[in-house]
Amino acid sequence: MKVIFLKDVKGKGKKGEIKNVPDGYARNFLFKKGLAIEATPANLKELE
Rank of each mutant, 00 (worst) to 15 (best):
Lys7Met: 12
Asn28Trp: 12
Met1Asp: 02
Phe29Leu: 07
Lys45Gly: 09
Gly16Val: 00
Tyr25Gln: 04
Ile37Leu: 10
Lys14His: 10
Pro22Leu: 08
Thr40Gln: 04
Gly24Ala: 14
Phe5His: 00
Ala39Thr: 02
Pro22Met: 08
Pro22Asn: 10
Thr40Pro: 05
Lys15Thr: 09
Val3Lys: 01
Gly13Trp: 13
Lys2Pro: 09
Lys14Phe: 12
Lys33Ile: 08
Lys12Pro: 01
Leu35Asp: 02
Pro41Gln: 12
Lys10Phe: 14
Asp8Tyr: 09
Asp8Met: 06
Val3Asp: 00
Asp23Asn: 13
Gly13Thr: 03
Ala36Trp: 01
Asp8Glu: 08
Met1Phe: 08
Lys14Pro: 01
Glu46Ile: 14
Glu38Asn: 04
Ala36Tyr: 00
Ile18Phe: 04
Leu44Asp: 05
Ala39Phe: 12
Ala36Phe: 00
Asp23Pro: 13
Phe5Val: 00
Phe31Leu: 11
Thr40Ala: 06
Val3Thr: 01
Ile37Thr: 06
Leu44Phe: 07
Lys14Thr: 09
Lys15Pro: 05
Lys32Glu: 08
Phe5Leu: 07
Asp8His: 08
Arg27Lys: 11
Lys32Asn: 07
Val9Ile: 08
Thr40Trp: 04
Met1Ala: 05
Leu6Ser: 02
Lys45Leu: 13
Val9Ala: 03
Ala42Glu: 14
Asn28Thr: 08
Pro41Val: 12
Asp23Met: 15
Lys7Thr: 12
Glu17Phe: 03
Phe5Asn: 00
Leu35Met: 08
Tyr25Asp: 04
Glu46Lys: 14
Leu6Trp: 02
Gly24Trp: 15
Lys12Phe: 15
Asn43Glu: 06
Gly34Pro: 00
Glu46Arg: 13
Leu6Val: 09
Glu48Asn: 13
Glu48Gln: 14
Val21Arg: 00
Pro41Ser: 11
Phe31Arg: 01
Ala26Ser: 04
Pro41Leu: 13
Ala26Met: 07
Arg27Met: 10
Asn20Phe: 15
Ala42Ser: 11
Asn28His: 12
Lys15Glu: 06
Val9Arg: 01
Ile37Arg: 08
Val3Phe: 01
Ile18Glu: 04
Gly24Ser: 14
Asn28Ile: 07
Leu6Lys: 03
Glu48His: 13
Asn28Leu: 11
Asp23Glu: 15
Phe5Ala: 01
Tyr25Trp: 11
Lys10Tyr: 14
Asn28Pro: 00
Glu48Phe: 12
Glu38Leu: 11
Lys7Gly: 05
Lys12Glu: 10
Pro22Ser: 10
Leu47Gly: 06
Leu47Phe: 14
Asn20Tyr: 15
Ile4Lys: 04
Lys32Tyr: 07
Leu6Gln: 03
Asp23Ala: 15
Lys7Trp: 11
Lys14Glu: 06
Glu48Arg: 10
Gly24Thr: 13
Phe31Lys: 03
Lys15Arg: 13
Val3Leu: 03
Pro41Ile: 12
Glu17His: 04
Leu6Asn: 02
Gly13Tyr: 13
Ile37Gln: 07
Lys33Glu: 11
Lys32Trp: 08
Val21Ile: 08
Lys10Ser: 10
Lys2Met: 15
Met1Trp: 06
Gly34Ile: 03
Leu47Asp: 06
Lys12Ser: 13
Ile4Ala: 03
Glu38Arg: 10
Leu6Phe: 03
